[in-house]
Design a protein around this nucleic acid. Structure first.
Lengths: 101, 101
DNA sequence: AAAACATATTGACATTTTTCGATTTTAGGC
DNA sequence: GCCTAAAATCGAAAAATGTCAATATGTTTT
């Protein structure tokens, strides 16, 4: 079981929370689904940059996207957060002896 | 209340989990306290690099360090993980209407 | 179909992060 | 004091990430 690639994947999930702008977006989404144009007015980055951040948030699973006409609506994904929380618990949980090497 | 600096601080906490090598270290620490020299044998980075990662882990609060003689022993900090988990919950929790802007 | 709008993509640049080699600091053994 | 070992610090190179300007794509309106 290649542990290394697993850690690489897990790091990707946590990277969603590593950037100040992304945390700002997540914070804004706490009050409900919003379209990119609304988010764009609140954060201090350009449109392409926001688009890039939203892509990272969606791919990490903590945000879901919904297209409707010209707009893309984003919202918090409860399942994505559960997954991240689960990983956190996993890393915090101590094993028994473990060191068989 | 300057939200921006708060997000900056929170991002710093999550950065502990953003790197593959750091996740590897956290994984190793699950089976108990270990000195840097042991960790060094398991991860595939040099000694100065490991030292740097350990500094980040300690400063983010998820790992605690204990010096004993020539050695430095590291272990998981339950409190640090609680804090990170709390932040995660905070971002996941929906507010009511919120938009008082 | 043309214009206007919302978002995505591309390409370049700047900043940040990771990494390493060399050196320094600190502690213990001779 | 001198030598060895463990870990930290310094300085620079390499890699990854964030940012923007320009352009492209898709959608609604006129």
């Amino acid at each position: 079981m290649d542990k290394d690639s697993k850690h690489s994947d897990n790091a990707k999930v946590f990277k969603a929370f590593c950037d100040e702008t992304r945390l700002m977006v997540l914070s804004l989404l706490r009050s409900g689904e919003k379209c990119a144009c609304i988010l764009l007015r609140k954060v201090k980055v350009g449109q392409p940059t926001l688009s890039h951040h939203m892509q990272i948030l969606v791919e990490s699973g903590v945000v879901s996207a919904r297209k409707e006409g010209k707009w893309t609506y984003y919202s918090i994904s409860a399942a994505g957060f559960e997954h991240a929380a689960g990983l956190l618990r996993e890393f915090a949980a101590l094993t028994d002896g473990g060191g068989s090497s």
